[in-house]
């Protein structure tokens, strides 16, 4: 009998750890027997030691906080500007005709291509990194919001007209609740993109953050610190996705999953 994913999870709580255990063992074997030195290819135990060390002296927390701060700020600005602009594009045909070609043109340009300009315009420090995060999240949010508005069942607008809802009431009581489930999904996707971009952005213009930690450790030939950076990036990425998924379970979006 084939079991479903949830049945397997219920059968044994440790199953999700199997792949991790295999990778850890292979990693340790390669580190010991490949002939690479400890400096080039540190084993899991050495990296674990480095994690302890960096947690103790506070550098890990400091770098993680710096990265999370930039992602949060850039992402919030993108959502605050992107969602209203998406609604405008979805609701006002003229705005769509005028702005959509520009957005479609800018969208495929990788945020990383903006790095030289970002540094020139915003100098060094948090600002260019936040700007790059903003760019990376802004376009997916705008486009997904506009698509979600376009996909609203026309019946809901007829109901709105029938009960004489004003434009403002239509936006607040019809448009926003109708697009909320799709927007939450779009936010979940863009937060992962933002997290990918922050690491790259921190390799250039800043002196803190997990991206900086990796670049700086490479320059110091501390591959164990590089690996610590990668592990923490992965962990925080999983955590961010978890938070966004919880957001998707809000009561105000429950109707979309059930109807």
């Amino acid at each position: 009998m084939l079991r479903s994913i949830s049945e397997w999870r219920g059968a044994n709580q440790l199953l999700p750890a199997v792949a991790f255990a295999i990778v850890l063992v292979l990693w340790e074997l390669v580190a010991r027997f490949s002939g690479w030195s400890e400096t080039v290819f540190p084993g899991p135990l050495a990296v674990l030691g480095s994690i302890g060390e960096m947690v103790e002296n506070g550098t890990l927390l400091q770098h993680s906080a710096a990265s999370l701060y930039r992602v949060t700020v850039g992402f919030y600005i993108a959502a605050l500007l992107g969602i209203p602009l998406g609604i405008l594009l979805g609701r006002v045909a003229l705005a769509n005709v005028i702005l959509n070609p520009l957005i479609q043109f800018l969208r495929p340009i990788s945020p990383l291509a903006w790095i030289p300009l970002a540094m020139l315009w915003f100098g060094i420090g948090d600002k260019p990194a936040i700007f790059l995060i903003f760019l990376s999240s802004f376009f997916p949010i705008v486009v997904s919001t506009a698509v979600a508005v376009g996909a609203i069942n026309p019946i809901y607008f007829q109901v709105s007209a029938n009960f004489c809802l004003s434009r403002k009431e239509t936006n607040l009581r019809i448009v926003i609740p109708a697009i909320l489930p799709d927007v939450v999904t779009a936010l979940r996707i863009s937060v992962s993109i933002a997290w990918l971009v922050v690491v790259a952005a921190e390799m250039i213009a800043v002196q803190s953050g997990l991206g900086y930690l990796i670049l700086d450790s490479r320059n110091a030939l501390r591959m164990d610190y590089v690996m610590v950076g990668m592990i923490v990036i992965g962990l925080i990425g999983v955590f961010l996705d978890y938070v966004m998924r919880r957001l998707g379970r809000l009561e105000s979006t429950a109707w979309a999953r059930k109807s």
């Binding site: 007829q158 009960f163 004489c164 009581r173 109707w255």
Partner: peptide
């Protein structure tokens, strides 16, 4: 133009799915 003097009852449900029965009637 539409007016609330004549109310349309839709073929498939025209209830707003994100509102409770009470909120729909309150509209």
């Amino acid at each position: 133009e539409p007016t609330s003097d004549y109310i349309f009852v839709f073929q498939q449900s025209g209830l707003l799915p994100w509102m409770t029965v009470w909120q729909n009637v309150e509209l």
